[in-house]
Design a protein around this nucleic acid. Structure first.
Lengths: 145, 145
DNA sequence: AAAAAATAGTTTGAAAGTCAAACTTTTTAA
DNA sequence: TTAAAAAGTTTGACTTTCAAACTATTTTTT
């Protein structure tokens, strides 16, 4: 079994596990109605200021139609505010509500704690190698895209 | 530079793009009708021999009902063969068809190229450290799950 | 041996997420 | 002042997913 195969299998599994964990982390007691997709949308909106639909959709790489549906749900649940721009009445501005901010920060804390816990179990050398590999992976993806 | 921040950012970006990329890699000229989900199922079935529904579903961490639907589609597209076991008539055996084998190998090549691009530029020591780091990560997520 | 329980899959109904294309409203360009 | 473009929304279709009900078969109990 060479490192190539090991890496491949491990990456595939890791990817699946992280997704599962993310899903569970998002759905805590306080935020039962929040999905991992909801959180991604909220991350794209960002913690401060308002953004328009098109820019958030582009960031998430979905159509504005798709984003409309996600935002409908987030507005209904009270995580996101939606208003029409006064300068350009075509534009819809979305931002995190107070409840949305709290959920966002809560999730960010989870992320930070997870990363910390992961890194604590690695040696310096392993941390460096991991970081390098991830950067290379990112670069590979950008080239292929 | 803080590896904690780097890791967080890199992971977030990676996870946002990785599905899209995989989707594109899978859907080549020869395999227009293949989705990334299809490929995951085929990977779980594996290139040789037949497996029953339950074991593949467990591997993929989905219900057998979900797998039934995936396999329906794969059979219809001609990537997977489905037969009933003679020893135990309850059991359904699934395996890759010839077309499925080809698609599977094609996709594996893409993965291998990706891994190669990642490993290229890492020293032997870094590669070993990376492997260790990933194995530890796997263990970490298994424990947390 | 007959009845009950367990096992393997499939089907069904519901929900989320997605896209393309048609559509409405508003702004910009001809 | 039309025509075209841009920003979002709506609609219809499709995929993926689960839980729960169901069918068929095998195993265990009684």
């Amino acid at each position: 079994m060479n490192i190539n195969n090991t890496l491949n299998e491990v990456l595939v599994r890791l990817f699946r596990d992280i997704n599962t964990l993310e899903e569970r982390a998002v759905r805590t007691e306080e935020y039962q109605d929040m999905t991992s997709n909801d959180m991604h949308v909220m991350e794209a909106i960002g913690p401060e200021g308002a953004k328009n639909m098109t820019s958030v959709a582009r960031e998430l790489e979905v159509t504005t139609g798709t984003l409309t549906i996600s935002v409908n749900s987030l507005v209904k649940k009270g995580y996101v505010n939606r208003t029409r721009s006064e300068e350009d009445r075509r534009v819809v501005l979305i931002s995190l509500s107070e409840k949305g901010q709290k959920a966002y920060l809560h999730h960010r804390k989870f992320h930070e704690e997870m990363i910390e816990a992961v890194l604590k179990g690695l040696t310096e050398e392993e941390q460096g190698a991991l970081e390098n590999a991830l950067l290379k992976l990112t670069r590979f993806f950008r080239e292929v895209s």
